[in-house]
Simulated scan of single mutants.
Amino acid sequence: MANHTVNFERRPRTPPGQAGYAYLWVLMMVLVMGIYLGLVGEAWQNRLQREREQELLRVGDEIRLAIKNYNAITTAGGTQYPKRLQDLVQDPRVPFARRFLRRAYKDPLTGEDWAYIGAPGGGFMGVYSKSPKLPLKQNNFPRQFANFADKKSFADWQFASWPDGGGRTR
Protein backbone atom coordinates (compact mmCIF):
# COMPACT_ATOMS: atom_id res chain seq x y z
CA MET A 1 0.00 0.00 0.00
CA ALA A 2 1.15 3.44 -0.78
CA ASN A 3 1.88 5.66 2.08
CA HIS A 4 0.20 9.02 1.53
CA THR A 5 0.88 11.88 3.77
CA VAL A 6 -1.51 14.73 4.09
CA ASN A 7 -0.05 18.09 4.85
CA PHE A 8 -2.43 20.30 6.80
CA GLU A 9 -0.57 23.57 6.76
CA ARG A 10 -2.29 26.49 8.31
CA ARG A 11 -2.73 29.60 6.26
CA PRO A 12 -1.97 32.84 7.99
CA ARG A 13 -5.13 34.47 9.28
CA THR A 14 -6.24 37.78 7.87
CA PRO A 15 -6.39 40.44 10.50
CA PRO A 16 -10.04 41.09 11.48
CA GLY A 17 -10.16 44.68 10.13
CA GLN A 18 -8.96 43.73 6.63
CA ALA A 19 -11.34 40.90 5.74
CA GLY A 20 -13.01 41.68 2.35
CA TYR A 21 -11.00 44.85 1.76
CA ALA A 22 -9.79 43.74 -1.70
CA TYR A 23 -13.33 42.73 -2.68
CA LEU A 24 -14.71 46.15 -1.72
CA TRP A 25 -11.87 47.85 -3.61
CA VAL A 26 -12.75 45.90 -6.78
CA LEU A 27 -16.45 46.76 -6.39
CA MET A 28 -15.61 50.45 -6.04
CA MET A 29 -13.44 50.34 -9.17
CA VAL A 30 -16.25 48.66 -11.12
CA LEU A 31 -18.66 51.37 -9.93
CA VAL A 32 -16.30 54.20 -10.90
CA MET A 33 -15.67 52.66 -14.31
CA GLY A 34 -19.42 52.21 -14.85
CA ILE A 35 -20.05 55.88 -14.10
CA TYR A 36 -17.19 56.93 -16.37
CA LEU A 37 -18.40 54.75 -19.25
CA GLY A 38 -21.91 56.15 -18.80
CA LEU A 39 -20.58 59.69 -19.14
CA VAL A 40 -18.52 58.74 -22.19
CA GLY A 41 -21.60 57.13 -23.76
CA GLU A 42 -23.68 60.25 -23.13
CA ALA A 43 -21.00 62.49 -24.63
CA TRP A 44 -20.81 60.20 -27.68
CA GLN A 45 -24.61 60.34 -28.12
CA ASN A 46 -24.53 64.14 -27.92
CA ARG A 47 -21.78 64.27 -30.53
CA LEU A 48 -23.76 62.04 -32.90
CA GLN A 49 -26.88 64.15 -32.31
CA ARG A 50 -25.01 67.35 -33.13
CA GLU A 51 -23.65 65.81 -36.35
CA ARG A 52 -27.16 64.75 -37.38
CA GLU A 53 -28.45 68.26 -36.64
CA GLN A 54 -25.74 69.76 -38.87
CA GLU A 55 -26.65 67.29 -41.62
CA LEU A 56 -30.33 68.19 -41.22
CA LEU A 57 -29.52 71.89 -41.66
CA ARG A 58 -27.34 71.22 -44.71
CA VAL A 59 -29.71 68.85 -46.49
CA GLY A 60 -32.85 70.79 -45.54
CA ASP A 61 -31.40 73.99 -46.95
CA GLU A 62 -30.30 72.18 -50.10
CA ILE A 63 -33.86 70.91 -50.61
CA ARG A 64 -35.25 74.41 -49.91
CA LEU A 65 -33.00 75.91 -52.59
CA ALA A 66 -33.90 73.14 -55.05
CA ILE A 67 -37.62 73.86 -54.54
CA LYS A 68 -36.98 77.57 -55.03
CA ASN A 69 -35.10 76.91 -58.29
CA TYR A 70 -37.74 74.42 -59.48
CA ASN A 71 -40.47 76.97 -58.77
CA ALA A 72 -38.55 79.79 -60.49
CA ILE A 73 -38.76 78.04 -63.86
CA THR A 74 -42.24 78.73 -65.16
CA THR A 75 -43.79 76.41 -67.67
CA ALA A 76 -46.82 76.73 -69.95
CA GLY A 77 -49.01 75.92 -66.95
CA GLY A 78 -47.46 78.73 -64.89
CA THR A 79 -45.53 78.40 -61.65
CA GLN A 80 -45.48 74.88 -60.25
CA TYR A 81 -44.20 73.15 -57.16
CA PRO A 82 -42.75 69.64 -57.20
CA LYS A 83 -45.17 66.82 -56.38
CA ARG A 84 -42.52 64.63 -54.74
CA LEU A 85 -38.83 64.83 -53.85
CA GLN A 86 -37.90 62.73 -56.89
CA ASP A 87 -39.18 65.60 -59.11
CA LEU A 88 -36.21 67.64 -57.85
CA VAL A 89 -33.81 64.89 -58.92
CA GLN A 90 -35.30 64.65 -62.42
CA ASP A 91 -37.68 67.40 -63.52
CA PRO A 92 -40.72 65.63 -65.03
CA ARG A 93 -41.79 68.80 -66.87
CA VAL A 94 -39.07 68.42 -69.51
CA PRO A 95 -37.97 65.47 -71.68
CA PHE A 96 -34.26 66.09 -71.02
CA ALA A 97 -32.22 65.75 -67.82
CA ARG A 98 -32.72 68.75 -65.54
CA ARG A 99 -31.70 68.26 -61.92
CA PHE A 100 -32.16 70.45 -58.87
CA LEU A 101 -30.88 67.84 -56.39
CA ARG A 102 -28.30 65.07 -56.80
CA ARG A 103 -30.52 62.54 -55.04
CA ALA A 104 -33.71 62.30 -53.01
CA TYR A 105 -32.27 62.68 -49.52
CA LYS A 106 -33.80 60.96 -46.51
CA ASP A 107 -34.34 62.76 -43.23
CA PRO A 108 -30.94 62.56 -41.43
CA LEU A 109 -32.59 62.21 -38.02
CA THR A 110 -35.11 59.45 -38.74
CA GLY A 111 -33.68 57.85 -41.89
CA GLU A 112 -37.20 58.04 -43.35
CA ASP A 113 -38.89 60.27 -45.89
CA TRP A 114 -39.39 63.93 -45.03
CA ALA A 115 -42.75 65.40 -44.12
CA TYR A 116 -43.97 67.84 -46.80
CA ILE A 117 -45.30 71.36 -46.39
CA GLY A 118 -48.17 71.64 -48.86
CA ALA A 119 -48.05 74.29 -51.57
CA PRO A 120 -50.91 76.33 -52.98
CA GLY A 121 -52.17 74.64 -56.14
CA GLY A 122 -50.70 71.25 -55.20
CA GLY A 123 -47.27 69.83 -54.64
CA PHE A 124 -45.03 70.85 -51.78
CA MET A 125 -43.09 74.00 -50.99
CA GLY A 126 -40.92 72.66 -48.21
CA VAL A 127 -39.89 69.81 -45.95
CA TYR A 128 -39.38 69.15 -42.26
CA SER A 129 -38.27 66.27 -40.10
CA LYS A 130 -40.85 64.02 -38.46
CA SER A 131 -38.65 63.72 -35.37
CA PRO A 132 -40.39 64.90 -32.17
CA LYS A 133 -37.06 65.16 -30.30
CA LEU A 134 -35.83 68.36 -28.70
CA PRO A 135 -32.89 69.81 -30.68
CA LEU A 136 -29.61 70.24 -28.82
CA LYS A 137 -28.89 73.36 -30.86
CA GLN A 138 -31.15 76.13 -29.57
CA ASN A 139 -29.31 79.32 -30.60
CA ASN A 140 -26.39 80.79 -32.60
CA PHE A 141 -27.88 79.73 -35.93
CA PRO A 142 -26.67 81.16 -39.23
CA ARG A 143 -28.85 84.03 -40.48
CA GLN A 144 -30.98 81.87 -42.81
CA PHE A 145 -31.92 79.61 -39.85
CA ALA A 146 -32.46 82.35 -37.26
CA ASN A 147 -36.12 81.30 -36.85
CA PHE A 148 -35.02 77.89 -35.54
CA ALA A 149 -33.93 79.36 -32.19
CA ASP A 150 -35.72 77.93 -29.15
CA LYS A 151 -37.82 75.42 -31.11
CA LYS A 152 -39.26 72.52 -29.10
CA SER A 153 -38.83 69.80 -31.75
CA PHE A 154 -37.12 69.16 -35.06
CA ALA A 155 -40.55 69.21 -36.72
CA ASP A 156 -40.50 72.97 -36.06
CA TRP A 157 -37.41 73.35 -38.26
CA GLN A 158 -39.14 73.93 -41.60
CA PHE A 159 -37.18 74.35 -44.82
CA ALA A 160 -39.46 75.97 -47.39
CA SER A 161 -39.66 78.24 -50.38
CA TRP A 162 -42.70 80.31 -49.41
CA PRO A 163 -45.06 81.62 -52.13
CA ASP A 164 -44.17 85.27 -51.42
CA GLY A 165 -40.78 84.53 -52.94
CA GLY A 166 -38.94 84.38 -49.66
CA GLY A 167 -36.84 81.24 -49.69
CA ARG A 168 -36.53 81.36 -45.93
CA THR A 169 -36.89 78.85 -43.19
CA ARG A 170 -39.57 78.87 -40.56
Rank of each mutant, 00 (worst) to 15 (best):
Gly17Asp: 11
Leu88Lys: 11
His4Cys: 08
Thr79Gln: 15
Leu48Glu: 13
Gln45Asn: 07
Tyr21Glu: 12
Arg58Val: 11
Thr5His: 09
Val26Arg: 02
Ser131Phe: 02
Pro95Gln: 07
Arg13Ser: 04
Asp150His: 02
Met33Ile: 15
Lys130Pro: 08
Glu42Cys: 03
Arg13Cys: 07
Gly121Val: 08
Gly34Ala: 05
His4Asn: 04
Phe96Glu: 11
Asp113Glu: 15
Tyr36His: 06
Val40Leu: 12
Val26Thr: 09
Leu39Thr: 03
Val127Tyr: 02
Trp157Arg: 02
Trp25Pro: 00
Lys106Glu: 14
Gly77Phe: 02
Gly20Gln: 05
Ala146Trp: 04
Leu88Val: 03
Gln86Lys: 13
Gln90Asn: 13
Arg13Ala: 13
Asp61Leu: 09
Ser161Pro: 03
Gln138Val: 06
Val59His: 01
Lys151Met: 08
Tyr21Cys: 10
Gly118Arg: 14
Phe141Trp: 10
Asn139Asp: 15
Arg64Pro: 03
Leu27Asn: 02
Tyr70Lys: 03
Arg102Gly: 15
Gln45Glu: 09
Ala76Ser: 12
Leu31Cys: 11
Asn7Glu: 04
Arg98Glu: 12
Gln80Thr: 12
Gly34Leu: 04
Tyr70Ile: 04
Ala155Cys: 04
Arg98His: 08
Asp61Trp: 08
Lys68Trp: 12
Lys68Phe: 12
Lys68Ala: 15
Arg168Cys: 00
Leu37Trp: 03
Tyr128Glu: 04
Tyr128Cys: 14
Arg64Phe: 03
Glu55Thr: 14
Trp44Asn: 09
Arg103Phe: 11
Phe154Glu: 01
Arg58Asn: 07
Arg64Ser: 06
Gly111Glu: 10
His4Trp: 10
Ala66Trp: 00
Ala43Gly: 08
Gly122Ile: 14
Gly122Cys: 07
Gly121His: 06
Asn46Thr: 11
Gly126Val: 02
Met28Val: 15
Gln144Ser: 13
Leu39Tyr: 09
Tyr70Cys: 02
Pro163His: 04
Pro142Trp: 08
Lys106Tyr: 13
Pro12Lys: 13
Thr5Ile: 05
Ser153Met: 00
Leu24Gly: 07
Pro108Arg: 08
Asp113Gln: 14
Ala115Asp: 15
Gly41Phe: 10
Lys152Ala: 11
Ala19Arg: 12
Asn7Gly: 08
Gly60Lys: 03
Phe159Trp: 00
Tyr105Val: 03
Asn46Ile: 03
Arg13Glu: 10
Gly122Lys: 04
Lys151Gly: 00
Leu85Gln: 01
Ala2Asn: 09
Gln49Cys: 10
Asn69Gln: 15
Gly123Ala: 12
Thr74Tyr: 11
Tyr128Asp: 04
Trp44Ile: 12
Ala76Cys: 00
His4Phe: 14
Thr110Val: 14
Asn139Arg: 15
Val94Asp: 10
Trp162Asn: 06
Ser131Trp: 05
Pro12Phe: 06
Tyr81Pro: 07
Pro82Leu: 01
Asn69Glu: 06
Gly77Tyr: 00
Lys130Gly: 14
Ala149Ser: 08
Gln158Asn: 00
Arg103Asp: 01
Phe8Ser: 07
Ala155Gln: 11
Gly167Ser: 14
Val89Glu: 01
Met1Arg: 02
Arg98Val: 15
Ala104Gly: 13
Arg99Gly: 12
Arg58Asp: 07
Gly111Trp: 13
Glu62Gly: 07
Val26Pro: 00
Thr79Met: 11
Glu9Ala: 01
Gly78Leu: 09
